[in-house]
Design a protein around this nucleic acid. Structure first.
Lengths: 336, 336
DNA sequence: CGAAGGCATGAAAACGTTCCCGTCTAGATC
DNA sequence: GATCTAGACGGGAACGTTTTCATGCCTTCG
């Protein structure tokens, strides 16, 4: 009312309701008893003025911004999208809101963005994957609670969530072996990436468990993207056609590989069986729908959100996420 | 230094550098001249203390939060993801950060989230699509600058960005007609959605322009999702097989339709040609890669970001986005 | 009937920043 | 050499909230 063009403050509300500022605040936070009539007068004033408390002021005073920083990688990656959705779900109706900061697999940008989030005084940090070192994350956790996914990290104030990538790789390849495949190729992810290395390890483990030998010609590197999957599959076909199945390091790789096979007039799964990793939504609509290792990423994001909320003292129940599982669809077939 | 466990403030910096608070502030904002030696002392103190200005305080004092609220729909939708990435790009290195608030095509949630963003005192609002009424958006624009996509809305303090959906539909269907197709089906979006209606209008327009009659049997509704595309295609095939091409209201619809054709052992494009709408990234990796109408959504997000930045007085250049265009890939073929 | 205690309420400080104003110093002009 | 001026710098208020503390009234019990 006073300054017509700027947002109403608690003072305006107090004036209109004929009470003190303190009383208004008390009613807003509901932590102390006030007389029923003032209660009503104040709520009436609030709706009349369309008052919303200024969260900057609240944050400044109380030290809590009610903001959760989320450090994510490429937004276009369906894997990270799922995690983000999970976080969003986990934060819903808690009064906390996520601030999304995409970085692009770039460590410098990641620490820069982390600083930015701290400057905004986010109450906690959720880090989805990324390339920060354990030490850097431990450093961040000295200031605010941190949840981090896709790595195992035991340290104070840190909650880590991850899936057993080796076991996933083993599951995938074991499925192929059980279907009778013996010549199984592998399109890996980036050679330095830890998930990539572990999944490859699972591929090796499954072979060892079944007493199968490894042919190095059947191992080729990709980049976790469709482009890499396509290129890798073409290179593989260049080298040899003596394989009946391919374990792709992730679903995007599988999708690229599938297109390469189409280009070469090879049928899936009649000529080549494919298994992916992640279970991104679009794999269900591949032609044919893709067999893969499901990572419940959304549930993991949810669990991460709940973990930081609990660290902040919120009264929400903890949540664990289910483990990896094999999802059998139609890109794999049993050898006769 | 004073309170070891909480973040350093401008006061700590001033003490350490042996200058006044005002001087530190001046240096931080670089708007006034200060002696070179103090300049250096302060910057040294800042790095030594690892000081980051508290943005809540800054926001409270100056009224600017350096936050741009983004109201988006489903995060998993590739269409909105692209817009978000564009916004992110447009905001990069400007000191502004986006706060993403996904709503789920739910008007109540949208206004609720918009209130939340205002309470956080975001400096501007970008609304990607959504179901808010024009009046509701105009109301919001009375408080802060607003950019809105996917609708035409001329009002003070509002920048709207949109593509000519009717023209897009016309382009798609005209392409099919030029390829010699005469019996062209259409899987529409939700019947009440305006984009859906306009694209359908484009389908009709192209027919009229070519003096082709419309067969109502060839019109069926979807829901802009893969599920709907699949269901609609199956229903269409149930009704008649007398068509050679289908214009799908968006790419997700096309992807679902494509799977339905696979299920029925119909080949794409040999038996049925398909055109989609949007050009989502995964369409390039469909088997075969899909022909579609490209909406430069990312560029639109970028333009929207720039528009609100300019409205806030930032010195960035305006950006317009390119129009719709036909992208010819491999789901369409010329009839002999 | 008087004192004590509890409860509703208001006043005021504090959070960390920016920015207006006033002061002081140093250099310049006569 | 004295006065004027401009520029560098510091003091302090203000942004909107929460919260502690004090105050005054009413109730209750001895």
């Amino acid at each position: 009312m006073s300054t017509p063009n700027s947002a109403p403050t608690v003072i305006d509300v107090a004036k209109l309701a004929g009470v003190s500022i303190s009383t208004v605040s008390r009613i807003l936070n509901g932590n102390s008893r006030v007389a029923k009539e003032k209660q009503e007068a104040v709520t009436r004033a609030i709706t009349q003025l369309n008052f919303e408390p200024n969260l900057s002021a609240r944050s400044l005073r109380g030290g809590a911004s009610k903001l959760i920083g989320v450090l994510t990688q490429e937004l276009q990656s369906p894997y990270f999208t799922a995690g983000t959705i999970g976080i969003e779900d986990g934060l819903a109706n808690t009064g906390y809101a996520p601030v999304l900061m995409p970085t692009h697999w770039n460590v410098d940008q990641e620490i820069e963005r982390a600083r930015l989030l701290l400057a905004r005084r986010v109450d906690a940090l959720i880090i989805l994957g990324g390339n920060l070192s354990d030490e850097q994350i431990i450093e961040l956790a000295k200031k605010i609670p941190v949840a981090v996914t896709d790595r195992k990290l035991d340290a104070p104030n840190i909650h880590s969530f991850y899936f057993d990538q080796l076991e996933g790789g083993r599951l995938a390849v074991n499925h192929l072996i059980e279907l009778g495949h013996r010549r199984i190729a592998h399109i890996a992810g980036p050679p330095t990436q830890s998930d990539s290395i572990e999944r490859r390890e699972g591929y090796l483990r499954a072979h060892r468990d079944a007493n199968l030998s490894i042919d190095p010609k059947l191992l080729v590197d990709g980049n976790f993207l469709e482009t890499g999957g396509m290129r890798a599959m073409l290179e593989l076909l260049e080298r040899t056609r003596d394989f009946t199945a391919v374990f792709c390091a992730n679903d995007q790789t599988l999708i690229g590989a599938r297109l390469a096979l189409y280009r070469k007039n090879l049928r899936v799964p009649e000529d080549v069986s494919l298994v992916g990793f992640d279970d991104v939504p679009q794999l269900m609509y591949l032609t044919p729908p893709g067999t893969t290792i499901r990572q419940p990423t959304q549930e993991m994001g949810f669990a991460a959100a709940r973990a930081v909320l609990r660290a902040l003292g919120a009264d929400v129940e903890a949540k664990t996420h289910p483990p990896l599982s094999l999802v059998i669809r139609e890109t794999t077939r049993a050898l006769a």
